Amino acid sequence: MRNCSTVENTPALETDRLILRRFAPGDEDALFALMSDREVNTFLPWFPLVERAEAERLLGEYLEFYHKPWGYRYAVCRKGHEQPVGYVHLGEGEPYDLGYAIAREHWGNGMIAEACQAVVEHLRQRGSVPYLTATHDRENPASGRVMQKLGMAYCYSYQEQWQPKGFPVVFRLYQLNLDGRSDRVYRGYWERHPMHFKEEL
């Protein structure tokens, strides 16, 4: 992985197959295709987009985000192709939550894990954050396998009344400590949700 920029808000990154860059004007159609796909968005915390105008508004939010001094909102693009096929996000503060999605035609080929790994390695090199977390719906184990490929460790599970979809979901929390503190576990979800437990995976 090569760091292609010194800007700390979503610096461009490159892997063998991918370019990770900021979203930009012209990405509306690609963003709409990704965010309107019902299968892609089954386990994500929003309803699939219905109208292209929604993608335009979402893109506007990304462009505003890039005015902040720090943060990560990546468009994932295949080398030689300008249009994004996925995204990688990182929460702006604790619990430094890593989120990602990729178009269905690229499921199962390790591409989203490759994109996430580039972000993880950048953060490790920069010392930008002390740790990362990621959560996945228990019914979506493929997302958990991405977390495992990144070296993240399962910590605990909790049940949340998921909004805006309005039904209970059991999430599994994974964590990767980047500062050498192997004893750190983010407890926020455990403390916030009365139904919490550890599973034998």
Rank of each mutant, 00 (worst) to 15 (best):
Q175I: 06
C116K: 05
L13W: 04
Q175F: 06
E61Y: 06
Q148N: 01
Q161A: 12
A134H: 08
G80P: 07
R73D: 13
E82Y: 00
L31E: 13
K68A: 15
K79G: 02
E54H: 03
G80L: 02
E64I: 08
L176C: 05
R187D: 13
H106D: 15
P11L: 01
G188P: 14
P69L: 07
F171W: 05
Q148G: 03
V119D: 05
M195Q: 15
D16K: 14
A103V: 12
N3M: 09
E61V: 09
G80H: 02
W107F: 10
A101R: 10
E105R: 15
A55R: 01
L20D: 12
V88A: 02
H193M: 10
Y158L: 07
E54L: 04
A153G: 10
C77V: 03
N177A: 07
R22Q: 15
N3G: 05
L150P: 04
K79P: 00
S182K: 10
E160V: 14
Q83M: 04
L201T: 11
T6G: 12
L173K: 09
R104V: 14
H67D: 13
F65I: 03
N3A: 09
T15R: 03
Q175N: 07
K149V: 08
C4S: 11
Q83S: 08
A113R: 03
T10Q: 08
R78A: 13
